[in-house]
Design a protein around this nucleic acid. Structure first.
Lengths: 218, 218
DNA sequence: TCACCTTTATGCACCCATTGAATTTTTGCA
DNA sequence: TGCAAAAATTCAATGGGTGCATAAAGGTGA
């Protein structure tokens, strides 16, 4: 049952190799020439397949960049799935956020350069930004559903949606706003966490003190 | 200085008439056949211009749907621009939110049908959703800058971004999540307000009581 | 009213992503 | 080896979008 890469046939191995080749060729080209300037024909040629065949690997040019987004989301949902009796809504949400931010800024499976490139591309290329935002919206919806299922007695579906939308929306905007200056991945990570803390404390807290930097995270 | 439609030349009037014709023809067709199924050629033909000329009126097919989004955003920024000494961050933000929600769900300048159609299109058509999200992100950034300028002593630029991202992100997700059932425009308006209140109170409040429906709004 | 300049509009030739259909090549397996 | 299924290829077409050169108005001063 496990696809441990040794017991699968030639067919599957070849497919994975082509997939890898496509991703690497595309990312290299996006890096050098930009996303728009890179044509599908070039990407396909670099991986030795016809342009038509490209579409049996990815549904669109944009999808190459987000090829591993699904597992990230599954990780987030998995965290919510095993709620313990003494878990709190904010506690679990912050755990999800922390894991997600680490994922985006450290990137275990690829190099750190990949993470940096991806961030740059999404900030720069309109088509990728649009795709990323749509994906983010979809994932937020699923996350909200998972949150409500984890805490059915504390949050309504709408409140779960508000909570997920708020915390992810805050992080997203804070990161984008802070990205104007050249920043390290660590700085981005901390900006995201700070934004999350503001949301946990509530906007009202912004009016009650000079700064809302609290102790939301252990 | 005022463009009162009587003192402008024939050139300008003709341009506005063509623009109107494009918008109306396009929206009607989007409504009847869907966004994707409507081609630029049809839209242009309905307004009696060549398809090439279409692009001197709108930069893309999607832009027709959001033709009046800019003034909405200017209204939001205008609210923040005249902060009074006793205004609070959350108070002003809620005022902006309330105005924006009313704008989207009541639509003074067009019919209510226009508002309903636009919501349906954005929920349904991937291309429009992507465009809407990108526009929303840009507007949030500008709103965050305006918020920081209105309260430079209370919120840092990052906190302003977190606040705007949180409240708009919460509303967005709550509205999208709640849109699965057929809902009236009033119901959408109230869902949005409820989401905003959750954010104002803070996510932590979700853990402190059974429900977080508070009295954030007078 | 005419000549002249500036804005708009158009036609045309492209590029590129994406899709459908028909066909051919590969691979897995009996 | 031979055959069925999966994958890759070829070919054609659609549709959004752009650059460019040219034509048609519209505005303006003399």
């Amino acid at each position: 049952m496990q696809y441990s890469s040794g017991m699968v046939g030639l067919r599957e191995r070849k497919k994975q190799r082509t997939r890898r080749a496509l991703i690497e060729a595309a990312l290299r080209s996006f890096d050098e020439k930009g996303f728009e300037a890179t044509t599908l024909a070039e990407i396909a040629a670099a991986a030795d397949i016809s342009t038509r065949t490209f579409f049996s690997y990815f549904a669109s040019k944009e999808d190459i960049v987000f090829h591993d987004a699904e597992e990230r989301h599954e990780m987030a949902v998995a965290i919510l799935a095993d709620r313990q009796p003494d878990d709190t809504v904010t506690g679990m949400l912050l755990r999800v956020i922390d894991a997600g931010l680490r994922w985006a800024t450290s990137e275990e499976r690829g190099t750190v350069e990949d993470a940096r490139l991806r961030l740059r591309l999404v900030m720069t290329e309109p088509a990728l930004q649009a795709r990323a935002l749509r994906m983010l919206l979809g994932n937020q919806l699923r996350l909200a559903r998972a949150l409500h299922e984890a805490f059915p007695e504390r949050v309504t579906p709408i409140e779960a949606a508000a909570a997920c939308g708020a915390i992810i929306g805050a992080i997203q905007l804070a990161v984008v706003a802070g990205a104007e200056e050249d920043r390290s991945l660590e700085a981005i990570y901390h900006t995201g966490l700070h934004a999350a803390e503001v949301v946990v404390a509530g906007l009202r807290a912004l009016d009650e003190a000079e700064s809302a930097a609290g102790s939301a995270l252990g």
